[in-house]
Write a protein that binds this DNA or RNA. Structure first.
Length: 519
RNA sequence: GGCCCCAUCGUCUAACGGUUAGGACAUCAGGUUCUCAUCCUGAAAAUAGGGGUUCGAUUCCCCUUGGGGCUACCA
């Protein structure tokens, strides 16, 4: 049931660590494009460099994709009950065939488990003379390159081994001399031209293209070979990847031609940048998706934010808040930017705050508690009474509009979780009021609040009404000392809200303490 | 060094030959029942430079400049 016109895209990371924020964006654009066109979003693990493999990285990659909602349609098994999360022993083993992968084969697609396939295709190229064995040492290659750099020439292999006699090459191969397999790029080929969906026509002179290594001396394929072979076998229709791959695309095109295969469409999306405009990297901030989630950035905000880094809905739209579904509807490769985009943490904070503000308190509490923020924040050290669900929900209803990220809970308002307040007594005085006046105000507040019953304490609006009435014209005289007494802080939410959160007992205790300070 | 890509406010971006060059973040100022936050209003802030093409260029072409990426038996 092959439908060759079907949209099939892939996200093809190397398992060298955690999912990078730039990787997430590449995955997102692939995902959006697939969903928009009723296509298939595939995950393929490109682990052809054994030395860079990080244990656990594959699982981590899959988990991050899953947590952000970008679960692949193919190439991954998410298992409920057992083990690694990437393989289902019951129904699928890794593929060991050189054949076409049809829709319905679900991987996992891990390149290190497909070495036979690449070997077979490399041999095919050797047989047809499109590729050749190279026995040159690293030292010689370095010398060649240095000489070329000195002469201001493009650095590329000089085809030395191609000049070896055929039987000499064969003899070396059979006797096991270490060698690699290179693509034989013919200069008479002419320019390599392709139409990039983002950039338009891209043209490279063949003389500038190196005889790329296809198979390394350890028998593993390089990225170039494995990538092209798999994209072909998996019937990838659109290669959507980061701009850093643009220079190697001509090499891939030459490979498709050498095999006589139909080419996918290419779309090279702009890089995510550090504030100094270099490629987004660690060192200048967090780049791991997991880190952002841990800090309390909501996946919806993260996805929304990076979607808009390098893409916009066009049509003069000024919409900034998009759900995943809305992104799917609006997405369009034609509105992907060509220039790189700086990853601006301040705007992410703003967007995350927007999402938090829109979250009902119950859902916010759910995220705080399941996200581990009860253990990671000021809440951890709070007295027992200040850790209850009911108390925390009251705090959240106040803090909701001042949180940039979940981990900020209590950060600006530590008095919500403090057993004792420490502050400068002078802070209690409103605009130079005398201590007597302050004491009088605090005593008045204490009297009012202690007279209120539980029902009146249950609503912050009631507290507000009563205190406001009592305050009269010069509100600061009463409210400022009360607020400081309850918070010990120069800045905080309103005294009504604080009192309501703290409750009668704790509020009165803090008031009494403040009055003691003045005597 | 070589090759390639890119270029609108500080940042993300809109305007696919004709706009007082628009929006958002950040910044600043003011307003909103005490401080802060939220919210509202306002301000400042950009087409890198030079040539063309055109009646008319942010927009199309060329050059310069600037930035970035790649340049491995890494992806």
């Amino acid at each position: 049931m092959t439908n060759t016109s079907k949209i099939r895209v892939r996200f093809a990371p190397s398992p060298t660590g955690y999912l990078h924020i730039g990787g997430l964006r590449t995955a997102l654009y692939n995902y959006l494009f697939a969903k928009k066109h009723g296509g298939t979003f595939i995950l393929r693990i490109e682990d052809t460099d054994q030395s860079r493999f990080v244990p656990g990285a594959i699982e981590s990659l899959i988990q991050s994709l899953d947590e952000t909602g970008l679960t692949p349609d193919e190439g991954v098994f998410l298992k409920k009950n057992h083990g690694s999360g990437i393989r289902d022993q019951e129904t699928k083993e890794s593929k060991s065939y050189p054949g076409i992968i049809e829709s319905g084969d679900f991987g996992p697609y891990i390149q290190s488990e497909r070495l036979d396939i690449y070997k077979q295709y490399a041999d095919e190229l050797i047989a047809s003379g499109k590729a050749y064995h190279c026995f040159c040492s690293a030292e010689r290659l370095t010398e060649v390159r240095e000489a070329q750099a000195k002469n201001k020439q493009a650095p590329k292999y000089d085809k030395y081994c191609l000049s070896l006699a055929a039987d000499e090459r064969k003899q070396k191969v059979t006797s096991g001399v270490p060698c690699v397999i290179r693509l034989n790029v013919l200069e008479e080929h002419g320019d390599v031209v392709f139409a990039d969906l983002v950039r338009g026509e891209v043209r490279i002179r063949t003389q500038d293209i190196d005889d790329q290594v296809l198979v390394k001396s350890d028998g593993f394929p390089t990225y170039h070979l494995a990538n092209v072979v798999d994209d072909h076998l998996m019937r990838i229709s659109h290669v959507i990847r980061a701009e850093e791959w643009l220079p190697s695309t001509p090499k891939h095109i030459l490979l498709y031609e050498a095999f006589g295969w139909e080419m996918p469409q290419f779309a090279h999306i702009p890089l995510l940048l550090n504030p100094d405009k270099s490629k987004l990297s660690k060192r200048q901030g967090d780049v791991s998706v997991e880190e952002y989630l841990k800090k309390g950035y909501l996946k919806e905000a993260l996805i929304n934010f990076i979607a808009l880094l390098g893409w916009n809905p066009g049509q003069g739209s000024v919409q900034e808040i998009f759900s995943l579904d809305e992104l799917v509807q609006a997405f369009d490769l034609g509105h992907v930017h060509k220039a790189g985009a700086v990853f601006d943490l301040q705007k992410l904070d703003w967007m995350n705050a927007e999402y938090i503000k829109r979250l009902p308190v119950d859902e916010l509490y759910e995220k705080i508690s399941t996200g581990g923020f009860l253990e990671k924040t000021l809440i951890a050290a709070a007295p027992e009474a200040m850790r209850s669900e009911e108390y925390l929900k009251r705090v959240l209803s106040i803090e909701r509009e001042r949180l940039a990220k979940l981990s900020d809970i209590g950060e600006n308002n530590p008095f919500f979780f403090a057993a004792e307040l420490s502050y400068d007594t002078g802070l209690l005085h409103w605009k130079g009021n005398a201590p007597d006046m302050t004491r009088e105000a605090l005593t008045k507040s204490e009297k009012i609040l202690s007279d209120l019953n539980d029902l009146e304490w249950s609503k912050k609006e009631i507290l507000e009404k009563i205190l406001l009435e009592a305050a009269g014209e010069r509100k600061g005289d009463l409210l400022w000392p009360l607020r400081v007494a309850l918070t010990g802080a120069e800045r905080s939410p309103s005294p009504f809200e604080i009192a309501w959160v703290l409750g009668k007992e704790e509020s009165l205790k803090r008031l009494e303490n403040s009055i003691k300070r003045l005597s």
